[in-house]
Write a protein that binds this DNA or RNA. Structure first.
Lengths: 210, 210
DNA sequence: GCTTATTATGAATACTTACTCATGTTCTAC
DNA sequence: GTAGAACATGAGTAAGTATTCATAATAAGC
């Protein structure tokens, strides 16, 4: 499944152990959401998964691999979410698409905002980068497809850079918004403004080739 | 100076001790830039400042206060930088202003990119928030002044939200750009695109009141 | 049932690090 | 010059945590 990236110390062959691995990854997510990444210890994770610390090291070489496995799972979820919502969107106009993507983004966060906030807090570690790169790849595909259908309206010289700018602006602004103790505006207003900015930029863009 | 926010354990009254405090804050900046915030220990800081660990606790209640003092200093620097560059910009048109602000932003980073990147890595802690809020306040002032002179061209219903969106988009996109092992485009191209996006948004904005 | 491979355990280990405090040094005021 | 205040020192303390490993339980193969 999602434990392919990191060479596990031991590959679980019985059903029992496969469940332990799954429980450990799930417990990692819960513990990070609850206590923060820095305060998440291997003992906490093991306890929450209902196993002993030793079992962690039966399947994961170290703590980092555990978090890596969690990230792999989330990146997979992200891919599925985009693939599901994509076909419906492409018929609409640019503004509707952007709004739809933002809506989908918030939906993806679901109830796990604390987890994603904690992971975002530690962007810049390679693991989090992987998440953003995946998102960028998907969005590039969206806008590539959109450009094919509406080649008259859209003039983006440098699609990767445009997507980079838009993606990062959206993601980080939303994350920072969510992390604020008291919001400066409603979620709707934020989405309106972000849509305005992104759609306007993508529509009117005559990006210089880089 | 910048050690007012945190009630220091002991207020330095002699010149000698004032220099120690300064050296400690400077050493904090250097050590964070060099080793990262997580790997920065009080012993490292003391060693680099050329004093013993005990002296750290002579003036700062804990490690956090040290970092807080550094943040205070940087926030002060930021204020001065903006105040210096501001009057010149307000005569220009919106695009030039935004471009100028971005340029000023990069100039502010100066050679300290690693330090700011490390601090940004730990946004969401209250200390970093303070930095962003200061920046937002300054930019709100800039655009408020601009709006007074060009009230015909600019129609921003909700200035605080617009500034929030633009500021966060710019800052985090730039920080992420800087943190990438290999850049997806030149710094110039990035600035062009960000300018395009922000200026277009601020010009054409008919923001919904929130 | 018996043997072997797989899985689970958790006290013990080894290491790091923030912070203290008893002692020593330097400054200042008179 | 000397008393007392301010300052400096750094080995030591306490607390936490990733990881190991000898031992025990469970499953699979025959």
């Amino acid at each position: 499944m999602f434990y392919s990236r990191f060479s596990m110390r031991r590959k679980p062959s019985q059903e029992r152990s496969r469940q332990v691995v799954e429980a450990l990854v799930e417990a990692t997510a819960q513990t990070i959401a609850e206590r923060g990444l820095a305060q998440t210890t291997t003992n906490h994770i093991a306890a929450r998964a209902g196993v002993s610390v030793g079992s962690v090291y039966q399947y994961f070489g170290n703590k980092e691999e555990l978090v890596g496995a969690l990230l792999d799972k989330l990146v997979g979820d992200l891919g599925h979410a985009v693939d599901r919502g994509l076909p419906l969107l492409l018929e609409a106009d640019l503004k509707t698409i952007v709004r739809g993507l933002l809506q989908a983004g918030f939906a993806f966060l679901g109830g796990n905002e604390k987890l994603y906030l904690e992971l975002a807090r530690n962007w810049d570690q390679l693991s989090t980068q992987r998440f953003l790169r995946t998102l960028e790849r998907h969005l590039q595909e969206v806008f590539r497809l959109y450009a094919l259908r509406h080649y008259r309206e859209l003039h983006i010289a440098n699609l990767p850079v445009a997507v980079f700018v838009v993606t990062n602006s959206m993601v980080f602004t939303i994350l920072h918004y969510l992390s604020l103790p008291q919001a400066p505006c409603t979620r709707e207003v934020l989405m309106d403004e972000l849509t305005e900015m992104a759609a306007g930029y993508l529509q009117g863009s005559a990006a210089v080739a880089g």
